[in-house]
Design a protein around this nucleic acid. Structure first.
Lengths: 219, 219
DNA sequence: CGATTGAATACTGTTTACAATTCTACGGGA
DNA sequence: TCCCGTAGAATTGTAAACAGTATTCAATCG
């Protein structure tokens, strides 16, 4: 047996690579909600045939980012207000427990440090009125929070929800109804540093309470 | 436009149907952990060509139930003790918040009723020493709990975790280290009926604490 | 006898071809 | 003018063919 000096090449599958790009396109709104994905056109763009492309599509369909209608095609999901509410429900479940895990089984001091940095970044974006950076840093903060809990499944589930969050933010950006609260992030980071579980829990619950910051566009 | 008296026929895609069967096979252990899925063989069993089958495989891969290694094939995931711990972390996040949602925004009385029935079923299976029924009723209880929270995303995320739970239980069944606590379920149901949020929360946390009931098979 | 090379085989990854369905646009008729 | 109905095009769903990689096993060499 040869020694461990070389690293095994990890070859990601073509569908995985395509799926990643599709997620990015959807998250950034370059594939708009409701839009149909033309298989021949897109697969040509990616430089592959329809087979691998269709396999990638199945991955996003499983995630709920695409919706497939038989013989009609696949469409970028259109998030209803109900859906957005549900996304925040999912995030609340995951992020609150992530904070608890960090405090009780992780490294709350280090974690709080990193989270504060992320909060600073958001504050900066806010002062510069950079909406894109604001969205990005908001997502970064929450993703970091979950990552710091060190649970692959929490992170995986959360990542899908964050793509949907980004989608809903892109929508809101058009109507200018976005709300960011950088101070919240700072408070959350501090509560984690302080190992104050119930405070972190409550802050996150409030921060993610959809009804709290959405003047519902009634259906 | 015609009236709403008829229901649109929902034609599920072939990959969806195949994926569902594969999940069942994996959950029941008929596709064993670590086993390689032979594309030609299995697609013939399903009566389709490799294309639709491969698309189905991508769905399970996205869920983490299959692991793909390039040019080697796809394998049923092998859950390490670490993985099982992580599954329970995920479940804890989801189920605790599900209970909270039921109590604070749902119908705790009705929910408690249904959960009690499910707990009874498990008690019965326990008295009859029916291990399969015990596993099944355990999963039914927890799935019901999440379903009653009325959140599609909570339910979807949870369903994947429950397949993994079933896998780990099938493993444990061989070593006879399974532990079921029917009384826990009854207590949880009652706490929900009583709208006692903090008690339901704590009971679920304890019930799902992996370290609590697993004498770790050290790595 | 053990290790190694190489051909044959089996399987996965991808492309291409075919079938079936849906969409579009044009034309006829009331 | 409006409403169908139909022919053609476009698109999806499926199957088959092709290409490349890994596995197996026997033969060869040290």
């Amino acid at each position: 047996m040869s020694e461990n000096r070389v690293q095994m090449v990890v070859q990601e599958s073509t569908p995985t690579l395509i799926a990643r790009q599709l997620r990015r396109l959807i998250g950034q709104g370059q594939l708009a909600p409701g839009e149909r994905l033309n298989e021949v056109e897109l697969s040509q763009d990616f430089g592959v045939s329809r087979g691998p492309f269709r396999e990638a599509v199945q991955r996003l369909t499983q995630q709920g980012l695409l919706v497939s209608i038989r013989n009609k095609g696949v469409f970028v999901v259109e998030l209803t207000p109900e859906d957005v509410r549900d996304v925040y429900i999912g995030r609340t479940a995951l992020e609150r427990y992530a904070a608890e895990l960090i405090i009780e089984r992780g490294s709350p001091a280090e974690a709080g440090e990193k989270l504060l940095e992320a909060a600073d970044e958001m504050e900066l974006a806010g002062k510069q009125d950079d909406l894109d950076a604001l969205v990005e840093s908001d997502i970064t903060f929450h993703s970091l929070l979950v990552s710091l809990a060190n649970s692959p499944r929490l992170r995986q589930m959360h990542s899908t929800l964050m793509i949907e969050t980004r989608m809903s933010m892109t929508l809101e950006a058009q109507s200018g109804t976005q709300i960011f609260r950088a101070e919240d992030h700072r408070d959350i980071a501090r509560a984690i540093s302080d190992k104050d579980r119930s405070r972190a829990d409550q802050l996150l619950a409030e921060h993610l309470d959809y009804s709290d910051f959405m003047i519902d566009s009634a259906s």
